[in-house]
């Protein structure tokens, strides 16, 4: 006979119930942290945000007025980095999944992409400063900042493109070839349209990433205060995350500036919320569409 312990099964069950309760408690506390952070900023910032706040420039040494130039600056940076990173990233993803020889080459590119995504954003800032600002002579400018941010979100774009294309079964490719289509035609008419929904989700998330990054634009683009909006890509611009950093840390009149900081943080959070929501809704919408097809 096997010397089983008496009531071991009940004891097992009891400790399991206890542990699982602990795990769920810890999980909910992590969600609680998220809710706390978001709630805190929403509650403190909601009173600050009004039309005037988002449509006027800062006044009286950042103690009054709005954040309009920072919103515009962030918008320019999003557009600039997207113009660079989206086409290059999508082409890179297409190359990896459709053209590159399977095995060593793809592995190598994937490794490099992973490495790039692991490099801290401040290193991108240094690099952008050395290459775009100093060597290429763009100076502190929207151009330099956009390119730096574009490089930063490149791995994200590449990876989502690759994943999206990988999910498309080979039978579609074979079907297209069998009808005499060339590789490029297949990619252009079958593969890309089918992968687009997932690619777009990735692009939206990368927009979210770009809009919140501070370190890469510290030395490539961001201005503390500009009296007028930028006129060309070679002008500096203000940006929301940098604006928040500046007024939160080097304020001269904290009493007056703190509300502005809360307002700025809330605008940033709202952008992220919208971006994530959009990505999730799109993902679900397209998932359902694929299923019903």
């Amino acid at each position: 006979m096997i010397p089983y312990k008496k009531n071991y099964s009940t004891r097992k069950k009891r400790s399991q119930t206890l542990l699982f309760a602990l795990f769920s408690l810890m999980s909910y506390s992590v969600i609680g942290i998220l809710v706390l952070i978001l709630g805190f900023i929403i509650v403190k910032g909601i009173g600050v945000i009004n039309w005037e706040f988002i449509s006027t420039a800062p006044e009286e040494g950042m103690t009054k007025g709005g954040i309009f130039p920072a919103i515009v600056g962030t918008f320019y940076l999003i557009i600039g980095s997207a113009l660079f990173a989206f086409p290059v990233g999508i082409m890179s993803g297409i190359y990896m999944n459709e053209y590159a020889p399977k095995g060593k080459v793809v592995q190598f590119i994937r490794m490099m992409t992973n490495n790039l995504s692991g490099i801290p954003s401040i290193v991108f800032g240094l690099f952008g400063m050395a290459l775009f600002v100093n060597t290429l002579g763009f100076g502190d400018s929207i151009l330099a900042g956009s390119l730096t941010l574009g490089l930063l979100c490149l791995p994200l774009v590449i990876r989502t493109t690759e994943e999206a294309l990988k999910a498309i079964p080979d039978s579609y490719r074979e079907g297209s070839y069998a009808l005499g289509a060339t590789k490029l035609q297949t990619v252009q008419r079958i593969i890309l349209p089918m992968g687009m929904p997932n690619i777009i989700t990735g692009l939206i998330l990368s927009v979210g990433r770009v809009s919140g990054e501070t370190a890469p634009i510290l030395f490539t683009c961001a201005a503390y205060f500009l009296p007028h909006l930028p006129n060309s890509v070679l002008d500096q611009c203000m940006a929301l995350p940098y604006h928040l950093y500046v007024i939160a840390t080097s304020g001269t009149n904290i009493e007056a500036q703190l509300p502005i900081a809360y307002g700025t943080a809330l605008v940033l959070i709202l952008i992220i919320l919208i971006v994530n929501l959009l990505a999730n809704v799109l993902r679900r919408y397209f998932d359902r569409k694929v299923k019903t097809n």
Binding site: I2, P3, Y4, K5, Y8, S9, R11, K12
Partner: peptide
């Protein structure tokens, strides 16, 4: 299987 059912006696486990 012995361990997850609460058998702790190592020499018994070895023999089994």
């Amino acid at each position: 299987g012995l361990r997850v059912n609460g058998v702790k006696d190592e020499s018994f486990i070895r023999q089994r």
